[in-house]
């Protein structure tokens, strides 16, 4: 033995009538080469009442975002060995908790949908692909890779206070993904739709989003570029 790792898990069962509480759990696990998700699954194998989401277990599907020792991360790519004990695992902040580590993502997805996240191009379709130079395509790097895990948006105090009206960093990153696409023809409509004291300008440059993104993306920079475009078109 001696491999015991200490965890503090946020537990909430809406059917119990009890308020949420922090549960101390000790797990016999060798952290070498393992991720936090491995530990959560091992804990669930002992106590199947623990609720969490997971799918790809390799950091590309965005299911298992949780708050770990105060930071939003994907459990499946968070190495156990680098975590300070007791490892405190909570649901993502700023969204209603359904149960344990599972939050209601709808406010997040509603903002994603609000930016009309699809390519707009009403020209007749060519028989082959639309051309795009490698340089034009490179402008989408750092934008299209978003996995909609909500680590960034739920780390943003502006989103906590204005979830109905502020698009949030993930939504704005995706808005810029289409603004930056040489094939998209709705740039001015997209900018009109964002030029609003809340939708875009609630971003106060706190930069939690940059720190939180598990894919190393930079929503703050994308937001900055949207602002620049708005300023440019005013002059």
């Amino acid at each position: 033995m001696g491999m015991g790792m200490k965890f503090r898990l946020y537990r909430y069962d809406p059917e119990s009538g009890e308020p949420p509480f922090m549960q101390d759990v000790e797990l016999d696990i060798d952290p070498a080469g393992k991720m936090l998700l491995d530990a959560l699954i091992a804990i669930k194998a002992q106590d199947e009442t623990l609720a969490l989401r997971r799918s790809c277990r390799e950091g590309v599907c965005g299911s298992d975002a949780v708050n770990v020792n105060g930071r939003n991360r994907l459990a499946c790519i968070t190495p156990l060995g680098e975590l300070k004990e007791p490892v405190e695992v909570r649901p993502l902040p700023g969204l209603p908790v359904i149960r344990d580590l599972v939050v209601d993502m709808e406010p997040f997805f509603r903002q994603y949908r609000s930016i009309k996240p699809w390519l707009v191009n009403d020209d007749p379709e060519p028989e082959v692909e639309r051309l795009q130079s490698p340089e034009q395509r490179a402008r989408l790097d750092g934008l299209y890779e978003c996995i909609l895990c909500a680590c960034c948006t739920t780390a943003c105090p502006s989103f906590w206070w204005n979830p109905e009206t502020f698009v949030g960093p993930a939504g704005l990153l995706q808005a810029y993904r289409f603004i930056a696409d040489s094939r998209d023809e709705a740039i001015s409509a997209r900018l009109d739709h964002l030029e609003d004291p809340y939708r875009l300008y609630r971003c106060r440059g706190i930069l939690n989003c940059v720190d939180a993104c598990p894919k190393g993306l930079n929503p703050a920079e994308a937001i900055g570029r949207i602002r620049t475009q708005l300023v440019k078109r005013r002059v």
Binding site: L119, N121, P134, D181
Partner: peptide
Amino acid sequence: AVYELEHMGLPFSRLDNGRI
């Protein structure tokens, strides 16, 4: 089927001549 995905906006990598 691939051209159609491109028209939908799939961000394919590109060759120097702009094709997929």
